[in-house]
Amino acid sequence: MELLINGKTVSADVESEMPLLWVLRDVLNMTGTKFGCGIAACGACTVTVDGLAVRSCVVPASSVVGKKIRTIEALGTPEKIHPLQAAWIAEQVPQCGYCQSGMLMAAAALLEKNPKPTDADIDAAMTNICRCGTYQRVRAAIKRAAGIKV
């Protein structure tokens, strides 16, 4: 099947029911997107599909053919860093960092839809699990990227 990932058409010879997560990680070697639970509970595997945050561990690859898939690898680059990534560093958000790809993609989807989210909006959108407990820094970094004064 052909997938539109980060602006490029990529072909992958996989079963139609194979979850997008594993196509990204184990077939295309795009390891920035992480495996955490396999049941869409933790959000480590979050990517955006047509701008919406989705948990790729439960999304069959065949269901996103023709849609725009964006992963952490294309959020920004070291040369042209995304405002969220800059905010993440300014607020020193990650600790172990494992869940942060998913956190950042969920935040990107949030700001795309809602450029000035309230605390309640952030609470509702950011349901990813972080075992290192970086949540308040995630909140601060989203506000910083959104230009919200705290």
């Binding site: 920035g32 952490i72 690898e73 070291p78 993440w88 020193q92 958000v93 990650p94």
Partner: peptide, 12 residues
């Protein structure tokens, strides 16, 4: 600033 964060925010 932590040295390990740049690569933890872009999937590297």
């Amino acid at each position: 600033l932590r040295l390990d964060l740049p690569e933890k925010v872009d999937g590297r």
